[in-house]
């Protein structure tokens, strides 16, 4: 179950419904996510249509590929030590 709160916004996963067929899924989705004016649109997608990917291999620990993974501060400090220069006062 994906719902859009306001027009123009992305549809976001809101939960799931257990239903015998598409018709039941439609009715239960409306009932639980739509009929109080809380959504402008719903997407009801069968579970089987979802391709789930959760195995992200990083064997060589290439942390610069990761959004959280590149500690620039540390690298900069190491580089300065090697070069024997001090940190710029404005550079912290």
């Amino acid at each position: 179950m994906f719902r859009q709160e306001r027009k123009g916004q992305p549809l976001q996963h809101a939960g799931s419904v257990e239903a015998a067929n598409d018709h039941f899924a439609d009715v239960y989705a409306r009932e639980q996510y739509g009929r109080r004016g809380e959504s402008t649109a719903l997407w009801v997608v069968p579970r089987s249509a979802v391709i789930e990917i959760d195995d992200f291999v990083d064997e060589l620990n290439r942390n610069y590929h990761r959004v959280d993974g590149y500690p620039l501060k540390e690298k900069l400090k190491e580089a300065r030590e090697r070069a024997g220069t001090e940190a710029d006062p404005g550079d912290r």
């Binding site: 419904v17 257990e18 239903a19 039941f24 009715v27 239960y28 009932e31 639980q32």
Partner: peptide
Amino acid sequence: PMLEEDVAFSS
């Protein structure tokens, strides 16, 4: 019979 139906029928 099911949670979803419980909500729908109660409503």
